[in-house]
Write a protein that binds this DNA or RNA. Structure first.
Lengths: 104, 104
DNA sequence: CTGATACTTTAATAATTGTTTAACAATGGA
DNA sequence: TCCATTGTTAAACAATTATTAAAGTATCAG
């Protein structure tokens, strides 16, 4: 179970265009992740700015970095986002969640 | 399909403790919604502050208000949140989304 | 060891955001 | 009509956040 403050932190982290782009890129990439420099190049973000944003994302638990030689690979942490979504939809419609589900 | 800017707006709206509380309360309540005053009382928020937050939430499309006599009932708009979640998980793991799904 | 690469940290500035107080509509009962 | 109720708006202030530039750390190839 996630706590409110944790969820706010995760939402704040994603509520910024650059960070949302970073996160989506990492989601698409999957568990293998992507080196910081590749992300910088792909999204046209300066290293300092990117580093700042990675710090925000990883402090929120949404991404994790692992060092590999000179590179740092960042990967999305899916558990945290799933927890966030679960928190948002908790007790939906007083327990009768017909109205909440996405129509497929 | 939701656009990036729309998603950022929705995430920003939820990325604040008071608004997250408001939203969760409305999610729990379902389509019927809840009068602004009831929300204010339940969450111990001043009317002016609450009004400010409702504006932010409805501008993001996350809630909708309907006037009923002297009251305004606010209700969660589930389609927008579902769209937001879909945007976040799009193309997860390059199309092989084993790692992204919540374990049930 | 030296120099280049990969990334982070710090400090300064600019912009955004949240809260409060006070004043302002609009609705409806007496 | 009068007045209390319900909620919104505007202005001011404090706090948070994003970006840039410059300096700093760590790894590796030669």
């Amino acid at each position: 179970m996630m706590k409110s403050a944790q969820v706010v932190k995760a939402l704040s982290a994603l509520a910024q265009p650059t960070r949302l782009g970073i996160y989506r890129l990492l989601v698409e990439r999957g568990p293998e992740g992507m080196a910081a420099g590749q992300v910088a190049e792909k999204l046209k973000v300066s290293p300092a700015t990117l580093s700042f944003h990675f710090k925000t994302l990883s402090h929120a638990g949404l991404v994790e970095g692992r060092q590999e030689g000179r590179f740092i690979y960042y990967a999305a942490n899916f558990a945290v986002m799933n927890g966030m979504v679960a928190y948002l939809t908790e007790n939906c419609c007083g327990g009768a969640p017909e109205a909440c589900k996405p129509k497929k």
